[in-house]
Computed example of a mutant assay.
Amino acid sequence: MPRENYQKRLDELRADVVAMGELVGERYASAIEAAATGDDALAEEVIEGDYEVNETYLALEDECTELLALQQPVAGDLRLVTSSFKVITDLERVADLATNLAGYGGPDGGVHPAVEFRELGEDAGEMVADAVAAYEAGDAEACREIAARDDDFDERCRRASEAVVRELLEADRARNEGAPDETGADADAEALEASLDEVSRALLAVRDLERVADHAVNVAARTLYMVENDDELIY
């Protein structure tokens, strides 16, 4: 293959990875909106649209494999191709998490009053978008900055999970301190079941948001390796 055509394919691969990142970002933003508002129709749209991300991933996987097999790239070109393969894998997993997140909204909208779900969700999405932008620009410093942000995000997720469990325990304590009659027992049981369901959805949502941020760090780590041959963020 002539050098010009080979370089064009490398450039197109990079552009296609960025386009996949934008597609995943759109799906993810819709998922956060669906969960924050309890919009079942939007949640279903996110879930049904996941096939588009999967098809994009498979096409890019084939391109990476072909470039490795036929062109046998070395040095910086090899890091570009292998890092791009890792990046699309993380983006595909963010899209999978988006399908989970879309369904966590309660019947009255929102996830749980103790969780700042929209804020956390938007911040995790911003980390992914910034990681893709760093990949596109080859910005090593941005990669390190994204990794540093993850520590704070993990702490916020920990506090959110603790707040959810604390509210559950306080509500259960309040119920036990009351003295309901027999007619109120069934209502208390139903309230407890609803509360447990809400808590379960909230804890799963926080867990998945933390994973989204982790995938952003993975994208940044592979980008740093691609740009500077530095594996300090890879773990």
Rank of each mutant, 00 (worst) to 15 (best):
A140K: 12
E44L: 08
A69D: 11
G21L: 02
E122S: 13
R166C: 10
G125R: 13
A213R: 07
L224R: 11
E141I: 15
G21N: 01
V206K: 06
V219C: 00
Y57D: 12
F153K: 01
F117T: 12
G178L: 08
R173F: 06
L91P: 01
A31P: 03
P107Q: 06
E122K: 13
L203V: 14
A69E: 11
D90Q: 06
Y225A: 03
R222F: 09
E232D: 10
D130E: 13
E162H: 15
Q7M: 09
L203P: 00
T37C: 02
D208H: 14
R79M: 12
V199C: 00
Q72Y: 03
R149M: 09
A69N: 08
A216T: 09
E126G: 11
D108T: 06
E193S: 07
L233W: 00
A59R: 02
L224I: 10
E145D: 13
D11A: 10
R173G: 13
I146Q: 02
I47V: 13
I32G: 04
E126H: 01
A147H: 09
G105W: 09
S161F: 15
Y104I: 13
V206I: 15
T99I: 05
T99Q: 08
Y225G: 01
E145I: 07
K8W: 02
C157D: 00
C143G: 03
Q7N: 00
V219I: 15
E210Q: 14
E232H: 06
R207S: 01
A137R: 14
G25Q: 04
L13Y: 14
D188G: 06
